[in-house]
Design a protein around this nucleic acid. Structure first.
Lengths: 341, 341
DNA sequence: ATAAATATTTTACGCGCGTAAAATTCCAGC
DNA sequence: GCTGGAATTTTACGCGCGTAAAATATTTAT
């Protein structure tokens, strides 16, 4: 396994002209079978890998991909990012993972950085409300981009996400038929647009059932959802009376905070006779199984969303980075029954 | 803000020769003040950014850095990675974040990928026991690398981590003086070397206190620590008798699983009179505040470890990638008293 | 079998920038 | 004002590879 300096040298060793070797590395099937065989024979004899910088310099479209999430310290995004990353690698691309860390500025910085990498495409889960819409729009004009998780209307070539109405229908329906109707617990000013859609889906569903919707909002901004849920629940407890004995959280991380507050204040949660409250969430957060009590929630189909997102991006790339009309794909969810409700 | 194709064109527009402009971008202080002023004047007139691929092609040492963690879906690593990333960017580097996703193969793939990027340095938190030591050693010979979190003896130019003995001393001491001495709860075959060090530190500390050390091991491999902790605790409960009423977990993620199992089985955890068990952990996991009950643990000094790690790497880079002797820096920890013990 | 059509390889050039060596400018100090 | 040497700038070349166009080999149709 001798080291080879460059493609020139490797081409000489394999008895093929350099440009043909270049073609091979760009797409092994684009050279004659006999040529390919000779190259591959030389390849496991003379450990050589093309210089990635020289490769990307002249290529109009690289094999680079960007995966951008709003907050990587949230295991939900970490998990989906892992999924996406692996699928991209399997398809022969070089994904780079970025987190905006919840900051508008950082999100823009990432997109500017990404631009320099001439990526073939980008999978972007935007911050949402706090995103700089103009900047993202501009970026999407230059780089083929599929949005996921958070939709920004009209931005990007496509959106792949979960159907918030489906989430809410599942949770509200279950909670209503198994006990008191739920009141909805959310952040006052959520960054993520799904939160808003869930709230209105909740109202719609309750009205459809002929029930009065009730919403309680927790104060606080940012991405420390557990803390916000905790504080919000403490406020509710201090106020004394709950709208109903069933609390439906906009998402699981809020619910985790709520459960912590209830535990601390001796409020028994669950569906047993001696329980004072029921609590449910949405998303099926990786830790939702391990709360006390374990959290009843509604689950994304991680795999399907991840799979469809990358497939959508590959379609987009094959289609020269443009779709005739912006596509939206929404996936439905399934109830995960645990102890908390 | 007109677009400029390349450095040649930009140099012409600013009235400076291209190589001088190149020097400027490499280090703004390396050109005469008057020259610098002219370049910067042109810079905010003619939106230009050097092509990153062309830049890195000929440079012997790039401004790229690698940050590699074993498992990004673990919020502990997500949090520390964020810290490291921001510090690197602040210092003018371009860090790229990688996760081995708990897999030996992936870790090697990452290092091979990293090699192509000609990074100035790498911050590596290895998988630990399941790492391919030979491969990592080879990588560290070629690329200036600082290990963090998990030490691999003799590998890399330096190691920055936490002092496991300090962790154990704090927890054991506190638990002993506030109630029954703890038994130690750990995974049977932990990947992370800190686990082993904590176990032996536990034994040493107990013996020093004249107490009999007792260790219980949970079966299971991989990175699903909560699940392993949960199952381990269920096994303990089924067996019936606990060594003592105080369970000290090797890390918080195991403890989260244990707390879930105890909750489910109606075992009351905490230090109140009516509690049957006390549970404590190590690491101060981001979610440890929100367990039921909230988890007493021992905290890393995230900031200090992150800061020292990058400083160590920058020292290493300034020192041409070599230290005379391999350095090890360990930071001590502080007890975080919560409700569980 | 042979000419036309097609697939494949080669020739030739350039991408955008780093960097050594040469040329120039600069700033004392006299 | 002049000279020497350091600081700075310019000249000149090459990095490793992509890719259009030209040359060649291969296949197809007659």
């Amino acid at each position: 396994m001798s080291k080879v300096r460059n493609m020139e040298e490797f081409a000489a060793l394999s008895g093929i002209s350099r440009p043909t070797v270049s073609k091979y590395f760009n797409n092994p099937d684009s050279v004659r079978a006999s040529t390919r065989a000779r190259i591959e024979a030389a390849l496991d004899l003379h450990d050589y890998r093309p210089n990635i910088f020289a490769m990307n310099q002249n290529r109009k479209l690289t094999k680079n991909l960007g995966i951008v999430v709003p907050y990587l310290a949230d295991p939900f995004f970490a998990e989906i990012a892992r999924n996406l990353e692996q699928r991209c690698i399997a398809a022969g691309y070089r994904p780079t993972l970025y987190s905006a860390h919840g900051k508008t500025e950082t999100e823009i910085d990432i997109l500017n950085d990404l631009r320099m990498l001439k990526p073939a495409g980008v999978l972007l889960a935007p911050l949402g409300r706090t995103s700089n819409r103009a900047e993202i729009e501009k970026f999407c004009k230059d780089v083929p981009t599929v949005l996921f998780d958070s939709n920004i209307e009209g931005v990007g070539a496509a959106f792949v996400g979960s159907d918030n109405a489906s989430f809410i229908n599942q949770s509200v329906e279950y909670l209503c038929r198994s006990g008191e109707p739920p009141f909805f617990f959310e952040m006052e000013t959520p960054a993520n647009p799904n939160a808003r859609k869930r709230a209105s889906a909740y109202v719609a569903k309750m009205e459809q059932l002929g029930l009065e919707p009730r919403i309680e909002q927790a104060k606080g901004e940012g991405w420390a959802f557990e803390e916000i849920g905790y504080q919000g629940a403490v406020t509710l407890l201090e106020r004394g009376k709950m709208p109903t004995n069933t609390l439906l959280c906009s998402n699981d991380r809020l619910a985790i905070g709520v459960l912590a507050a209830f535990y601390e204040h001796g409020v028994k949660v669950g569906r047993d006779a001696d329980c004072q409250m029921r609590v449910a969430g949405h998303d099926d957060h990786p830790f939702a199984r391990f709360t006390g009590p374990s959290l009843t929630t509604v689950a994304h189909d991680y795999d399907t969303v991840a799979n469809r997102s990358v497939e959508m991006l590959f379609d987009l790339i094959r289609n020269d980075g443009r779709f005739h009309t912006r596509l939206e794909v929404l996936f439905s969810s399934h109830l995960v029954l645990r102890a908390s409700a």
